[in-house]
Amino acid sequence: MCGGAGKPEAKDIYRPEPATLARSEGLTAHERWFEVKLDSGRPLGHMPGQFVEISVPGIGEAPISVSSAPGRNGAFELVVRNVGNVTRALHGLPAGARIGVRGPFGTSFPVDGAMRGRDVLFICGGIGLVPVRSAIQYVLDHRPDYGAVTILFGTRSPSDRLFTDETAKWAGTRGVTYMETVDRGDAGWTGKVGVITTLMPDLKIDPARTVAVVCGPPIMYKFVIIELHKMKVADENIFVSLERNMKCGVGKCGHCQINGLYVCRKGPVFRYADVNDVREAV
C-alpha cells in the first residue's frame, strides 16, 4: 500500500487484478455474453457455481457468476443482464477494454461431490442458467462420471432464452433430456407455455438417484422445491444457488446475509437441507 502503511498489495482483499474483455456478444435485448482474460495469464481456478467481482473503473463493482466450465485456458465467460450502473457500463465496453476481477469466490455446485455418479436434474429460470451452465458444461465434459442428465429451462418469453445454439446441442445429446418453457409465447413460438414448474410433473426421474440443482429468480425457489418434494427428492439432494445484495464478496460488508449466513462465503450454492429452516433463505 502506498501512504506509509507499507504492506504488500497482494494481501488486499479488495484489490481487483487487471483483466481484459476479450470478446463480447449480445444474447438478448438485456443480456450480453463476455469472454474475460486475466492479464497475468493465470487460469481463474474456479469451480462451477462460483462468482467473481467485476470492476468497471469509475463505475463500481458487481458480483457475476462464472458461466463457463473451468479449464478453458485462462479465459472465462460471463453473462451480464443490464440492470444498473455497473452492468450497463459493462454492456457499453468494447472488446479490449480493461476491467478488474476479484475472485473466484463462494461455494460451488458439488460436481465432484454429491453429484458424481448420480442422475442430475438442472432447473434454471431466466439468467439462473448462467451459473448453472458452468456445471452443465462440466458434467458434459466428464460425461461418464454422471448418470442421466435432465435440464429444465424457463424464461419469460422466447426472446429471453439464452444460448439457444448450445441448448439445442444439449437437446440433441444422447443421455440428456432438455425441456424448455416460456411464461408467454409469441407468434412464432410452438414450444411449451407455462411457468417452469409445469414441466416437472411429466419428469420420469428416480428420486433416490437424483441430485437437483436449482437457480432462478427469488420467487421461483419455493414453487420448484414444492414440486421436487412431490417427486420425493430429499432436501439433502437439492442444491440451490441464491442471489443477494453483495458489496464485498469476502464476508465483511454485511449486505449478503441470510439471517446469520454470509452468502458470499457460505454460498451462493447451498445444500437445501442446510437452509430449509433458515427463515430468510427462500
Binding site: 500500500m1 501512504g3 506509509g4 484489490r15 478488474g100
Partner: peptide, 17 residues
C-alpha cells in the same frame, strides 16, 4: 479511500498513520 485506479489498474491506498 481503499483503492486508486488509473488506466484500468488498481492499487491499494491507505492513509493509516
Amino acid at each position: 479511500d481503499i483503492l486508486r485506479f488509473s488506466d484500468g489498474r488498481y492499487e491499494s491506498v491507505s492513509d493509516a498513520a
